[in-house]
Design a binder for these strands. Structure first.
Length: 437
RNA sequence: GUGCCCGUAGCUCAAUGGUAGAGCACUCGGUUGUGGUCCGAGCGGUUGCCGGUUCGAUCCCGGUCGGGCACC
């Protein structure tokens, strides 16, 4: 259930409220990433200290855990205790990140260096994509940790078990829906194929056909699950759904793909919009400076009344640009990952904490986050990050994460207020002028 | 006092009679639907000191200084 409260007079920005079984989300909103059902470095009780309204977990990474769940109630421990709305991503991005990105060392945002280094032949050895879905090679966790856990004797036992297991795992739209229903999130995504920024038109065209076919499968599966769900709830013998789409179980968002090609993006926007999804996700790869252009192609074809989620974006500047183009939700690893790596965001800059060994000033002036309120200084945080004691390092990462997540959620709060006051554009210009990226 | 072992990058250690390597630390970049301390690059050395053997010694030999262990 999505209500648009206000539309900005001067841009496409809009203010809304997205209602879910676990609470309301004020939009535009940042969605904090909790891939493995936890926000890394934070305790569940920390999450509410960060103004977080909603988190996103990942189907692929919770695959094994999800299938052990017996009933369809929310069982994602950790996040469950935070009692906030949850999204789950479908696993479609892992088609790119594990199958292509890892192998070719290319991110979904293509920067000029990657472009220069781009190989003419694109490897996709770790995945096999068919009309029915995707086979992933050696997806097990332990495999990737080979280097790190080599000294742990228990590792070899684990390793032996992995080797005996099936080397390939298959994920398609049906299974993705099943896993996401098991996880019981408030908002789930259709299974899609995220292509690489190096893929050409022909490949993207084929991939888009798959994504569109899978979108229909996802809707069909989702409807089945809802029928089952509503029957269970009222105990009625017939399968007549008593609730509208998006209420009985999680809302389902379709995903627009099409890579860097206008005709494909437009085609996808029209097609996904024509289907009875509860919201629209925008996925895929962009060139470094092509995001706004891509949104300008897509957004005019999206239904006004449905929420729009831009997948995997946000740097500060990108957020302002996306909101301006009419985006309501984003998720991104930037606040959490950069915090763990000692990059701290403030209203005027983002800086590396390792450069503050001799300077003792507040983390940020006039910041309301729980860490700054406890008078954390850059020197103190520096010492935690540089400590030889793992527990102190973990403390440092936790404080950095608390601060960064609060910063981004608070920034979105300020953006919402500016839209409410018809001052979005001024706020954007003022903020970006003083923010050194 | 006698015997044995060890002195190599800021730290912990490799290596070989033929241009001395790694990890950590440090410096600078990077991170966009997360495989949790990440990724990339850079800086860094008269191999304790003095002599000898050798075309060539960090390595072999002698001395010396410093550290450790054992014994008297």
């Amino acid at each position: 259930m999505f209500n648009i409260v206000k539309k900005d007079k001067y841009t496409k920005a809009r203010l809304g409220v997205l209602s879910t079984p676990h609470g309301k989300i004020q939009t535009p909103s940042y969605v904090i990433v909790a891939t493995h059902a936890e926000v890394k470095c934070l305790k569940p009780s920390d999450i509410k200290k960060t103004k977080t309204q909603v988190v996103i977990c990942n189907t692929y990474h919770l695959w094994d855990r999800a299938l052990k769940i017996q009933n369809s109630k929310l069982k994602i421990q950790g996040i469950l205790r935070a009692k906030i709305p949850i999204m789950t991503d479908s696993g479609g991005f892992q088609v790119f990140s594990l199958g292509f990105g890892k192998e070719n060392k290319v991110g979904k945002i293509l920067n000029p260096v990657d472009k220069r280094l781009a190989k003419s032949f694109i490897h996709r050895q770790n995945i096999r994509i068919t009309a029915k879905g995707v086979r992933f090679k050696c997806p097990d966790f332990a495999q990737a940790k080979l280097g790190r856990k080599i000294e742990d004797p228990r590792f070899f036992l684990r390793e032996a078990r992995v080797k005996n297991r099936e080397d390939w795992k298959f994920l398609g739209p049906e299974l993705s829906m099943k896993i996401q229903e098991k996880l019981g999130a408030d908002i789930i995504f259709a299974f899609d194929e995220c292509t690489s920024p190096l893929d050409g038109f022909d490949y993207n065209k084929q991939a888009l056909e798959r994504t569109h076919a899978w979108a229909k499968v996802c809707l069909r599966e989702h409807k089945k699950n809802q029928l089952r769900c509503s029957r269970n709830e009222v105990g009625a013998p017939t399968g007549t759904p008593t609730k509208s789409v998006g209420e009985a179980s999680g809302m389902l968002f379709g995903i627009v793909q099409g890579g860097r090609f206008k005709s494909l993006r437009v085609k996808s926007a029209k097609f996904i919009s024509s289907l009875p999804f509860d919201g629209i996700g925008i996925g895929g790869s962009f060139g470094k400076d092509e995001m706004v252009e891509t949104l300008k192609w897509i957004v005019p074809y999206l239904p006004e009344e449905k929420p729009r989620h831009l997948l995997g974006i946000g740097k500060v500047e990108d957020i302002f640009n996306a909101v301006e183009q009419g985006i309501d939700l984003f998720d991104c690893v930037i606040p959490t990952r950069e915090a763990r790596h000692g990059r701290i965001y403030t209203k005027t800059e983002y800086f590396d904490i390792s450069k503050f060994r001799n300077i003792d000033i507040p983390l940020e002036r006039d910041c309301g986050c729980s860490v700054c309120l406890r008078r954390m200084t850059r020197l103190k945080l520096y010492k935690l990050f540089k400590s030889t004691k793992p527990i102190r390092q973990a403390q440092g990462r936790r404080y950095a994460t608390l601060h960064n997540v609060w910063f981004f959620n608070n920034l979105l709060g300020e953006i919402r207020r500016s839209i409410k006051n018809n001052r979005f554009k001024q706020f954007k210009n003022r903020f970006l002028n003083q923010f050194k990226s």
